[in-house]
Amino acid sequence: MITLHVNGQPHDVDASPDTPLLWALRDVLGMTGTKFGCGIAQCGACTVHVDGQAVRSCQLSIGSVGDQAITTIEGIGSSDVGAKVQKAWLDLEVIQCGYCQSGQIMSAAALLAHKPHPTDEDIDAAMAGNICRCGTYVRIREAIKKATAA
């Protein structure tokens, strides 16, 4: 049994230590807001925070998480930065189909938590690993800037 600290709550997970965090979140804990995209950390759909860092949960084993705090799209709204990002996303209607957007929001929130006033280059660097089939990139960048100003 492994205990994961997700969105401030401890959860016991009965799975082997090499289980990817994404599997534990979706299949064991029923938190399906985090999406499965490629499974090889190339698309960003599964992004969550581990101790405030944006990580791809499909490639992170639960055995290596330890006591670190995990934040998912279900819990990001309870932080100031997360709430601002979500509001900007809604105000600008960033989302089209929405599948990648949990990951986009998590990467944006991690960026703003570390760099409250990112340059365009910082945004590119932080967001490049999150791909969007609908091509919402222009609105994503605008929303990040809006969340910065808010």
Partner: peptide, 12 residues
């Protein structure tokens, strides 16, 4: 190089 690194490598 930077563009590819950002998209394909930086996540891991």
């Amino acid at each position: 190089g930077a563009m590819i690194f950002a998209g394909a490598c930086a996540a891991c």
